[in-house]
Design a protein around this nucleic acid. Structure first.
Lengths: 332, 332
DNA sequence: TTGTAGGCGTTATCAG
DNA sequence: CTGATAACGCCTACAA
């Protein structure tokens, strides 16, 4: 079935019109007579014509493609965000080219270059930490760039996020108010998680002169890693904790399970605070106290910022702090 | 910074060579003299040139793009699969264009058309249920097509999956051997999940003349939905169950939690069987008995099949049954 | 080793 | 309302 790819010219031939007319029929049917339109549609149907968007993009310098880079597509953290972002853009005719590029800015740079070569109409990046070369490429691509999930003084273009430092700090204050005095943290090995944990520790230190025991996971956050870290923590004889701040709800769930399997009462013996407010957090047997970030909203705003910028060249750069919210449930 | 996009011609001008030579320097440096190469690289560096893959794709009819359609990108089921698939292809220079298209074949058809317009070099589809029009478009696109996650007598081209019917059946047999007699199922609202549940029910009926109480969720599978369905099930006075087969591990986890919060002993009072063997399944307090599907392997095989087909036109269509494995843990 | 010519399948521009 | 014609930026011949 190596039938040659059907072109507009072929469709036109069949319909008895020129290639241009076919193009018009597709992009703005009102510019073509009803009768011609009918014949063209017939020909399209008969040939199974699928327009070549590659050629279209080249001719018009408009690819209808929006790039999105996230650290990991297996990490649910970013999923609902990207889902919302994609769906908004899709409604306006764009397709999203999604790639996971890890947490390393150098890998990100490579990925950015590959993406820009496809001439996307806009690009979304997770985080604000990029190589100098990456920034240069992005700038000269001359398209809207939106950085999400963090805030920065000097965004490349658009920025929609929240302050990880403030989050860590406010969680510490929450814990202090609640009367906890022997804190610990368990964090995934990524820079933003570390920043939250550090801010948490500093605030605790400043206000209560308490040292925070910090555990850092090796791999990605997971239930099993959360359990293991908790076990390690609890087995250090000299230490006993009354509250653990985790860098994700998944880790926190691991803490809950490990605590329970050791007969510890949560929050009586040990309180747990998560991060993310994933779907499952409220449905756990011990509902999880956690930090909610409105990821869907972030995706939505990122999309609409980008859309506005694409529609009018003059639209200004923007900076949106979406904040976060500590959701008090039973675990702390 | 509306600097005009740099082209190969511009780079060439700066390096004192023609555009073609720049093209060569990029695609096969060995065909260019060392000195020329040096000057070209300098010029590329100086201008910040990023090749235009759109033009390249048009000229060579090779897009280095591979499409992948999954029902949902928030559903972890498909994530590890796609991650593996993408990473294999990326190693060979391809980029994956990932889109979620829901469970409806008509929506899928629309999405397929959009993807084909980008002239991907191959396409991956989840499932085997496509509209006639979709099949026609795929066939005439004349590229490798791989259908995953299911098996069919008549694949479009390549197929890598397992039998959902057999899975449901074998779970039933497992439960029967284990001595359970009052079965129930909780399934997400998707056709494959339904097929597993039906096969489970039929097998139970055939071998033990037992009716299976079947609950179908409305939305996507979630912990909360799993809890709720369990609660509903347990509150139907006249019925009492000794084993529940869930269409996903997430639902199963909901069952575990609800059971525990009602003081039921698992598996003594109620046994639970999941599906998917997600990361967390083994780390739960009551480790989950479940059906393992090697999703990473599926992604890997799908990728290598596709790569083989792209490299040699003559490579035959293929059909791979990856099977599944019932993982016995504590919950059943 | 390098360059010239032509074409990939559209869209934009200008005529008719 | 319809049709030529010239880009778009690259790759594939073929030639030097």
């Amino acid at each position: 079935m190596a039938r040659a790819r059907v072109t507009m010219a072929a469709v036109g031939r069949l319909a008895g019109v020129s290639q241009v007319t076919v193009s018009r029929a597709l992009s703005d049917p009102s510019k073509v007579s009803a009768e011609t339109l009918r014949r063209i549609n017939e020909a399209i149907e008969a040939t199974g014509f699928v327009p070549n968007a590659v050629a279209g993009a080249l001719a018009s310098s408009k690819s209808w493609l929006v790039s999105a880079l996230v650290p990991s597509i297996t990490n649910i953290t970013y999923n609902s965000l990207i889902k919302e972002f994609s769906s908004r853009l899709r409604d306006q005719g764009y397709q999203v080219l999604l790639t996971d590029c890890g947490f390393d800015p150098v890998d990100e740079e490579t990925t950015i270059a590959r993406h820009l070569s496809r001439r996307p109409d806009a690009i979304l990046l997770t985080g604000i930490n990029h190589t100098a070369q990456a920034r240069r490429m992005l700038l000269s691509a001359n398209i809207p760039v939106v950085e999400i999930w963090e805030l920065t003084e000097s965004p490349i273009d658009l920025c929609v996020g929240f302050s990880h430092q403030t989050a860590g700090q406010e969680v510490a204050e929450y814990a202090i108010e609640a009367g906890f005095t022997r804190p610990a943290t368990i964090s995934a090995n990524d820079e933003r998680a570390r920043r939250r944990a550090d801010a948490f520790a500093r605030a605790f230190h400043r206000r209560k002169a308490a040292e925070v025991e910090a555990v850092q996971l090796n791999g990605e956050a997971s239930l099993a890693e959360g359990r293991k870290a908790t076990a390690d923590l609890l087995e250090r004889k000299e230490s006993s904790f009354d509250v653990i701040f985790c860098s994700s709800d998944l880790i926190a769930q691991g803490v809950l399970i490990e605590a329970r399997s050791r007969g510890l009462n949560v929050p009586g013996d040990l309180a747990v605070i998560g991060f993310g407010d994933q779907d499952f957090a409220a449905a756990l047997e011990t509902p999880l106290t956690t930090v909610r970030v409105d990821r869907a909203k972030m995706g939505m705003i990122a999309a609409s910022e980008v859309l506005t910028r694409m529609q009018s060249e003059t639209s200004p750069s923007k900076f949106v702090d979406l904040g976060f919210e500590i959701i008090k449930r039973r675990s702390a």
